[in-house]
Amino acid sequence: MRVIAGCARGRTLKTRKGMDTRPTADRVKESLFNILTPYLSGAEMLDVFAGNGGVGIEALSRGADRCVFVEKNAQCAKIIKDNLILTGLADRGEILPRDALGALSLLQKRENRFNIIFLDPPYHSPELADVLRKIAQGCLLLPDGLLLVEHHSADFSWHDPAIWNISREKKYGDTTISFLSPAAAGGDVSMSQQEEDK
Rank of each mutant, 00 (worst) to 15 (best):
C67K: 00
L128T: 15
I95E: 01
R22L: 11
D26L: 10
H152S: 15
Q194H: 12
M19R: 15
N52C: 15
G53L: 00
R98H: 11
Q137W: 02
R9M: 06
V48Y: 02
L40C: 08
M1L: 10
R2C: 04
D99C: 07
I117C: 05
G102S: 13
N34W: 11
R113D: 00
I4W: 05
D120V: 12
T15L: 05
K81N: 11
E71S: 05
C7T: 14
A162L: 12
S125C: 13
I35L: 11
E169G: 09
T175Q: 08
A50I: 04
I117Q: 02
Q193C: 08
T21D: 02
P23Q: 08
P97G: 03
S125I: 14
A100C: 14
T24V: 15
F33I: 13
Q75M: 00
D144Q: 15
L180E: 00
I135L: 08
L32Y: 04
T176L: 07
G42A: 10
L32K: 03
K81W: 05
G42H: 10
R16F: 08
T21E: 04
G10D: 07
A8E: 05
E195G: 06
G173T: 11
R66S: 14
A90C: 09
I95V: 15
M45I: 13
V70S: 03
L141K: 04
I4N: 02
G6W: 03
L148V: 12
R2A: 06
R98P: 01
A154L: 15
I57C: 01
L40D: 05
K109A: 12
A184K: 14
L36Y: 06
T15I: 14
L146W: 06
V149M: 03
L60T: 01
H152Q: 14
E94P: 00
A8N: 07
A183V: 09
L89E: 01
E111T: 13
N115Y: 03
N73M: 04
L40W: 08
F156Q: 12
Q75Y: 00
Q194E: 13
T12D: 09
P121E: 12
A136F: 08
R110S: 09
E44Y: 09
L148S: 04
P38L: 11
R9H: 12
F49C: 09
S167Y: 02
G18W: 07
G102K: 12
L60H: 00
F114D: 05
P182I: 12
E71N: 04
A184L: 12
V28R: 04
E94L: 13
R168A: 14
G53Q: 02
G54D: 06
E44P: 01
G56Q: 01
C7L: 14
L132A: 11
G53T: 03
S31H: 09
L148P: 01
A183N: 04
G10H: 09
N115T: 09
G186K: 12
I135S: 04
G18H: 11
D91V: 10
H124K: 15
L86D: 04
N34L: 07
Q108D: 05
V55H: 03
L107C: 10
N73W: 06
L84F: 01
L180P: 03
